[in-house]
């Protein structure tokens, strides 16, 4: 099968930039809508995580499977999930991917290679390992990838699934986004290891720490892991060090986060860093950047309008589709 190379070409770099910018624009719009009381439910923002969200997911190919969490909407953009689908989902409309059944970021589409997540963490670690098991049984050259935050690494499922995936040598890539906090709990209250990825040796699999705000590094390390999995080399654990730049959910002002920390990580903004990279290589100018942002803003506004004009499901649909058949 045709796979991407480790070195990204111009078109791919610009595509990654588009997804990062689109992700941020969607989240900024969601934040406004939430604060304005326009959404029926919650929002979970991954602002600051654009590099690992897009960079890791971009390493997958069509046919691979992505198993994200509620904060990883941006990772679904390279899988083909659209702004319209994200807004209809948040607006709980009948034409959303879950027809109003699932909440905020819980959209997915198996055909486009991304599961619809659940709240319990890291429940999709086992699910991704199971998808990888199916690929292995059928001798398919497909890879599963799953995300969780460092908070979810305290849960037994996390250990169980990585261990089993190692024992069975499954084609799966485990991503941990270490974003500093599990809700309000800082990392130092979650674990004593310096790096989550250090635990990889306990499962006899490769582990890597990446700069979670450097999209090129996120892509390259993940890409190596995806290639290794596809070639029969088994699972990899990747930890991306980054920062959750908002509270746990929309209602959380995150006053437990020191402003100095936020200021520090603002200066490390993954989008600004990637823009500088592109500008240095002559791939982006102020003018082309403005053009891209304008295009994305129009796309987002169009999606919001589409969602607002979309109908709600009918109440009686609440008891439909509990079972297949």
């Amino acid at each position: 099968m045709e796979v991407k190379s480790l070195e990204l070409n111009t078109q791919q770099l610009m595509e990654i930039y588009y997804f990062m910018r689109l992700g941020r624009a969607i989240e900024e719009r969601l934040e406004l809508l939430y604060k304005g009381g326009r959404l029926p439910g919650a929002i979970y923002l991954g602002r600051g995580q654009e590099a690992i969200e897009v960079g890791a997911s971009y390493a997958l190919e069509p046919g691979d499977m992505l198993a994200p969490t509620h904060r990883d909407m941006m990772s679904q953009l390279p899988r083909g999930i659209t702004a319209k689908e994200i807004f209809t989902q948040h607006y709980a409309r009948t034409n959303s991917l879950t027809r109003g059944k699932g909440e905020d970021n819980y959209q997915g589409d198996l055909k486009r290679g991304t599961f619809a997540t659940v709240s319990m963490l890291p429940d999709f670690y086992p699910v991704a390992a199971g998808a990888a098991l199916a690929f292995k049984i059928r001798n398919e050259k497909r890879v599963a990838m799953t995300y969780c935050g460092e908070g979810a690494t305290s849960v037994g499922d996390w250990h169980e699934s990585i261990n089993v995936a190692s024992v069975l040598n499954l084609p799966v890539v485990f991503i941990v986004i270490n974003n500093g906090y599990a809700y309000s709990t800082p990392v130092y209250k979650e674990m004593k290891v310096a790096n989550v990825a250090d635990r990889a040796c306990a499962y006899a699999i490769p582990g890597a720490v990446v700069d979670g705000n450097d999209v090129i590094e996120c892509y390259r390390e993940t890409k190596k892991a995806v290639d290794r999995a596809r070639d029969g080399g088994g699972p990899t654990l990747i930890e991306a060090k980054t920062m959750r730049m908002r509270g746990h959910a929309g209602h959380d002002p995150a006053k437990y986060m020191a402003t100095e920390i936020i200021d520090l990580w603002t200066r490390r903004d993954p989008i600004v860093r990637f823009e500088n990279y592109l500008i240095e290589r002559g791939l982006l100018t102020d003018e082309s950047k403005r053009e891209i942002i304008n295009r994305i803003n129009a796309e987002v506004e169009d999606a919001v309008r589409f969602a607002e004009e979309s109908p709600y499901p009918e109440g009686k649909e609440a008891i439909e589709d509990v079972y297949r058949g």
Binding site: F115, Y125, A128, A131, L133, E160, V164
Partner: peptide, 20 residues
Amino acid sequence: MPIAEEAFIGMGVGAALMGM
């Protein structure tokens, strides 16, 4: 399987979603 019910039951879900 190792003693890991949560993992291998979850793996069953993942494999089932992939058509097994």
